[in-house]
């Protein structure tokens, strides 16, 4: 399927979430979250620490089981799937980029191995092809070819994050979950990563759910924005509309609290 077909075939949502709720005992993780995500769309989720955005992301990605609600991926009920099926989905169609690259990489394995491993997990066996594809992806995330045999522990934070992205995207996923992917990086490194992500989203037609507390990041990356507070979605809409004409009291506070540079 070409990119244009993927972009124009937007009648069916890729992900449909209805009434998702997760409790930790009496405490609400997230409550009654519903949204649709279409192919090629980037959805930003913002909110302060403890707002439930990370809980929501981990429920969506299958790391936690929600108490209530439905998740349909490409028309299939994710929560009803067998564990094997779900694991296969998260190795092929889905990707998850952790805030800390150490959580998403194998630090004792070479950069090329980190990327190749994902390919082998989906059945690639030909060494030359795996290495070639790994080298290609390192190039796409701007890691020099002569670093392919180095371990990620020898990389800077920004390079590790780019390597994690290469490892995630090498299998051609359609849906990517990102948890604060630019958190903890220097501003100049952040800009480079944002530029890279934008290009990849556009060229590969990826659907992305990105959790962050950085409003500047979502403005540049996300088409749509969801604002969470105390586990609930208080406002959602077009990113620039939510940021420039916020309707909810909490969003107004959030937007007006950002320091102007």
């Amino acid at each position: 399927m070409t990119l244009m077909e993927r972009m124009t075939m937007t009648d069916q949502p890729l992900l449909r979430v209805e009434g998702l709720t997760k409790r930790y005992g009496q405490r609400i993780g997230c409550a009654d979250v519903s949204f649709d995500l279409y192919p090629g769309e980037v959805l930003g989720i913002v909110g302060e620490s403890g707002s439930g955005k990370s809980t929501l992301l981990s429920c969506l990605a299958g790391h936690q089981r929600p108490d209530l609600g439905r998740i349909a991926y490409d028309g299939r009920d994710v929560l009803e799937m067998s564990e094997t099926e779900r694991r296969r989905l998260s190795r092929t169609d889905w990707a998850y980029v952790h805030q800390n690259p150490r959580d998403g990489l194998r630090m004792g394995v070479s950069a090329g191995g980190n990327v190749g491993e994902r390919l082998m997990a989906v059945g690639a066996r030909h060494y030359g092809e795996i290495r070639g594809k790994a080298a290609d992806w390192l190039g796409r995330v701007e890691i020099a070819a002569d670093r392919i045999d180095d371990r990620p522990s020898a990389f800077s934070g920004g390079m590790q994050q780019r390597l994690q992205i290469a490892r995630n995207l090498v299998t051609g996923p359609r849906l990517v979950f990102m948890d604060e992917p630019t958190g903890g990086l220097d501003v100049s490194v952040q800009a480079r990563l944002l530029d890279l992500l934008r290009g990849l989203v556009r060229d590969l037609g990826l659907s992305v759910i990105i959790v962050t507390h950085d409003l500047a990041v979502v403005r540049l990356l996300a088409h749509r924005l969801m604002v969470m507070k105390s586990g609930r979605v208080v406002e959602q809409g077009l990113t620039d509309q939510v940021l420039d004409d916020p309707q909810h009291a909490y969003t107004q506070l959030l937007v007006s609290s950002v320091l102007q540079v």
């Binding site: 620039d240 509309q241 309707q247």
Partner: peptide, 9 residues
Amino acid sequence: MRMVYGNYL
């Protein structure tokens, strides 16, 4: 203008 662009509701 911003309303026409969908930037303001």
